Simulated scan of single mutants.
Amino acid sequence: MSKRRSLRILMIRLGAMGDVVHALPSLQKLREFFPESELDWVVEEEWSPLLEGHPALSHLIVLPRKRWQKSWRRRPLSTLWQVWDFLKRYRRKKYDVVLDLHGNLRSGVMALLARSKAKFGFWRKASKEGNHRFLREVPVPLHVHKIEKNLYLLQRVFGLPFSPPSCATFPPFPPLGVEILRWWSSIPQPRIFLHPMVSRYGQIKQWPLPFFARLAELLSLKLNAGVILGYGPGEKKQLEELRSLIQVEVFPLPRLLSLPELVQLLARVDFFVGCDTGNLHIASALGVPALGLYGPKSVDIYGPYYPNAEALFSSSRPCLPCNLRLCPYGRNISPCMEELTPELVFAHIQRRLERQ
């Protein structure tokens, strides 16, 4: 397609945090090659603050799915009216191309409901839940990083040249508030951000909390680092459990941060350590020196992508990477994650900081 051709393009990537960040290079690529086109994006409400006001976007379509689920039992008629109103507005615009970068049943339904005769998504080997039945299947490589998988879809649909991105661009966010800045100024350098928790669907990726506690102590005692403890919605109890295990001064986030606040705070830290979570991928996309702790998941597909980030992973087990959600050994913590000792992780961080 001509670089100057004006199109109406709809991107579908509903969530989650890390996957929305992984789709940003595709948005940037489309804007680069179709500067006059309308580029819209459908995303679930929870993750929309990561995209609001993005300079490459024409319109952001926010899907309040979880809000509808909560209100359905109490106000079913009102909820039905909200869904109907959303669908009317959603179908008002006709698109030249719809791109499904999500690849599951929900995104397939959103593609089906969109007004377009050209709907493209990943072929059945690279999607799930029957997503391929709702659109035209596009073959993409299977064992590449998720960022590159998205870009290969653009290459096959539009003929765009494939080039790995060196960074991701976030929208401009409001400045951090005085409360956060005062807390930040009280933390000694180097400021090292630990994000110990994973989502309830990703428990197989969890590094043990006692290991995080020991790592925090090593960083504080041996490097005089200011150790920041991050947490997300519903993780306050785990944070308190972790704090009870740590025998040195640490700096938990003063409150639950909004996504724009989180992005801005991560951009300031000297180093980030965490499991395979959206926080790790935001830090990586910002160019922050980062270390991801991996076990069951393939680093080639799910690892931190950008140059300043690395992954530390166990390679001693023949079952790795299994890419499963439940460990077949029936353990709460995957044995492969336990093989990454706090001392091993600390030594890696120390070497990285010495090179910076």
Rank of each mutant, 00 (worst) to 15 (best):
Arg317Ser: 12
Ala56Trp: 14
Trp81Leu: 12
Trp68Tyr: 01
Phe120Ile: 03
Tyr152Val: 08
Glu32Gly: 14
Gly15Glu: 05
Ile9Glu: 09
Lys88His: 14
Glu52Leu: 10
Met11Gly: 07
Leu51Tyr: 09
Leu30Pro: 07
Lys88Ala: 08
Ala114Leu: 04
Gly202Pro: 00
His102Asn: 03
Pro165Val: 07
Gly121Asp: 01
Lys117Thr: 09
Arg4Trp: 11
Glu129Met: 08
Pro296Ala: 05
Phe271Lys: 04
Arg351Glu: 15
Ser26Asp: 00
Ala283Thr: 01
Val20Cys: 11
His132Ala: 15
Gln350Asp: 13
Lys117Gly: 15
Ser58Lys: 12
Arg325Lys: 15
Glu45Ala: 14
Leu265Cys: 10
His195Lys: 00
Arg106Ile: 13
Pro328Leu: 14
Pro25Thr: 11
Val269Tyr: 09
Phe212Met: 00
Trp68Ala: 07
Phe120Thr: 03
Arg156Tyr: 07
Arg200Met: 10
Leu24His: 13
Pro296Thr: 03
Gly18Ser: 08
Val273His: 00
Thr341Val: 12
Gly230Cys: 05
Gly226Glu: 03
Gln28Thr: 12
Arg106Gln: 15
Asp19Leu: 07
Gln28Pro: 02
Leu259Tyr: 06
Ile12Lys: 05
His195Arg: 02
Gly103Cys: 13
Lys29Asp: 05
Val42His: 00
Pro254Ile: 11
Pro233Ala: 14
Gly292Phe: 09
Glu179Arg: 07
Phe134Gly: 01
Ala114Arg: 01
Val138Asp: 00
Arg133Ile: 08
Glu235Gly: 11
Val21Leu: 04
Leu218Lys: 07
Leu80Glu: 02
Val140Lys: 06
Thr79Ala: 07
Leu10Ser: 03
Phe162Thr: 06
Leu257Lys: 03
Arg74Cys: 05
Trp184Gln: 03
Glu36Gln: 15
Ile180Asn: 09
Asp270Met: 10
Glu32Ser: 15
Pro35Phe: 04
Phe134Ile: 04
Leu242Met: 12
Ile9Thr: 02
Ile246Pro: 03
Tyr95Leu: 08
Arg74Ile: 09
Ala283Ile: 02
Val144Ala: 08
Arg106Glu: 13
Pro25Tyr: 02
Leu291Tyr: 00
Trp41Lys: 04
Val20Ser: 05
Lys125Leu: 14
Leu30Gln: 13
Ala168Phe: 02
Phe211Gly: 01
Lys146Phe: 02
Pro328Glu: 04
Ile9Arg: 05
Pro161Arg: 03
Thr341Met: 01
Arg13Cys: 13
Pro196Trp: 00
Ile180Arg: 02
Pro289Asp: 06
Thr79Tyr: 03
Arg75Glu: 14
Glu241Leu: 11
Ala225Leu: 00
Arg133Glu: 10
Tyr152Cys: 06
Gly292Asn: 05
Ser284Asp: 09
Ser163Asn: 04
Glu38Pro: 00
Asp40Val: 06
Gly292Arg: 00
Arg92Leu: 15
Val345Ala: 07
Ile61Ser: 09
Met197Phe: 14
Pro172Phe: 05
Leu215Gln: 02
Trp68Phe: 13
Ser58Pro: 13
Leu77Thr: 07
